[in-house]
Amino acid sequence: MTAQPSAARTRVVLVDDHRMFRSGVKAELDDMIEIVGEAPDVDTAIAVVRETRPDVVLLDVHLPGGMGNGGSDVVRGCPGLTTESGKPVRFLALSVSDAAEDVIAVIRSGARGYVTKTISPADLIRSVHRVADGDAVFSPRLAGFVLDAFGAAAGEVAEVDEELDRLSAREREVMRLIARGYQYKEVAKELFISVKTVETHVSSVLRKLQLSSRHELTSWAMSRRLL
């Protein structure tokens, strides 16, 4: 019998109906996280998740079985589950779809995040760890769907905090657009500034907020209802 993995490794169940895709994800991530189970459909996924009680369930939103949106059916089929340490089992959608209805459905069911399959392995690993820690994680552009669905007005600031106060008015404008998934050229066109100026503002925003990527910036902005 093999030795138990380090407690620091995040335990993950991988749910996707394409075996080759699951194999590819395992090959990319298995050195950084512990894959404790796999499933190709809704019923199998619910059974595996209930048995293994992982930190994170990484699941596609379109799965065989269930009543409609397969990812949502898996989340709803595992109510109140906790890990052995007593933390909630958390769900992160990983899908080729970036349709608003898919994003909203799985988040309404209780998932903590939604990333598309264009995500890099490094960003996916970071997303899994962040969801395991209780953060909400979204691919660029997708956070806006969730905010709109849950009633946050565009540009609304829920509260002023010290971190936000570090940013200039122009940096806040750039931050909101980048967090919503705009490319540098799109931001430049929207704000009538050069791409180089956009790059300078983005670097300044990330440095001031002590963030390292667009994904982290999106989560930060979403938590403050800034998008």
Rank of each mutant, 00 (worst) to 15 (best):
A45S: 10
R141N: 09
A111N: 06
T197C: 03
G144W: 03
V61Q: 05
A105W: 04
A153Q: 14
S219Y: 05
E162W: 01
G68E: 10
V74G: 04
E216T: 06
D60N: 11
P54W: 03
S85Y: 01
I119E: 02
R112C: 09
N69L: 09
S72G: 12
D55W: 00
R90D: 04
I119K: 06
G151Q: 10
A99T: 11
R50C: 04
A45G: 08
D30V: 00
V106R: 02
E156I: 01
R126S: 13
R170C: 00
R19H: 12
A93E: 02
Y182W: 12
R166M: 12
D133W: 04
F138A: 06
S223H: 11
D43V: 11
E173R: 13
L63C: 06
V115P: 01
V61H: 09
S109E: 14
A27S: 11
S223N: 14
G66L: 07
G155W: 08
V187E: 07
L164Q: 08
V74N: 02
R108E: 15
R50S: 13
P79K: 12
T197I: 08
A47W: 00
G37V: 00
D123T: 02
V106E: 02
G134E: 10
G181K: 11
T2C: 08
L227E: 02
A188G: 15
V96G: 11
V96R: 07
P79W: 07
D133E: 15
A7H: 12
S219V: 09
A47M: 04
R9Q: 15
F138H: 06
V202D: 04
A99Y: 13
